[in-house]
């Protein structure tokens, strides 16, 4: 019973980790490079959630100081994740540029076809 209550209190983390593992699965199992990058960004967004969730206080508001409120959520994770989102898009753009180059060199973005072509050479 205690374990069940524990699980219910950490339900948000379980969903986050489900998303994270879906991303991980795409990255490992799929050969298409665009799909791999999308998996990577799903993993990334789940990490955003993992950071933001502990900062939330039930009954608190967004961390904008106003005399009408006294309980605020923690602003520090928000700042860190703001940085992470922008960096994430930068890496996504770089990764996609690499995919376009690979497509130009090999004519495909499937990992297995690329390995085959390398073997032929």
């Amino acid at each position: 019973m205690a374990t069940l209550i524990d699980l219910a209190q950490h339900y948000n983390y379980i969903v986050t980790i489900f998303l994270m593992m879906a991303g991980l699965y795409i990255v490992i199992a799929r050969g298409n490079m665009v799909k791999k990058l999308i998996g990577l960004s799903i993993f990334q967004t789940s990490v955003y959630l993992l950071y933001i969730e502990p900062g939330k206080i039930i009954g608190g508001t967004a961390p904008i100081i106003d005399p009408a409120f006294s309980v605020y959520s923690n602003p520090l994770p928000h700042v860190l994740i703001l940085t992470a989102i922008v960096v994430g898009v930068a890496t996504l753009a770089l990764g996609l540029a690499l995919v376009v180059r690979i497509n130009e060199a090999y004519g495909t973005v499937e990992e297995e076809e690329i390995v085959e072509k390398d073997r032929d050479v």
Binding site: S41, Y48, G55, L82, L92, A93
Partner: peptide, 22 residues
Amino acid sequence: LDAVDVAMTEASVGAGISTVIL
């Protein structure tokens, strides 16, 4: 989760720019 700034960035960057480059 009260992270309004992050939500704004995610909507514009994650849903906007990412989609365009994809």
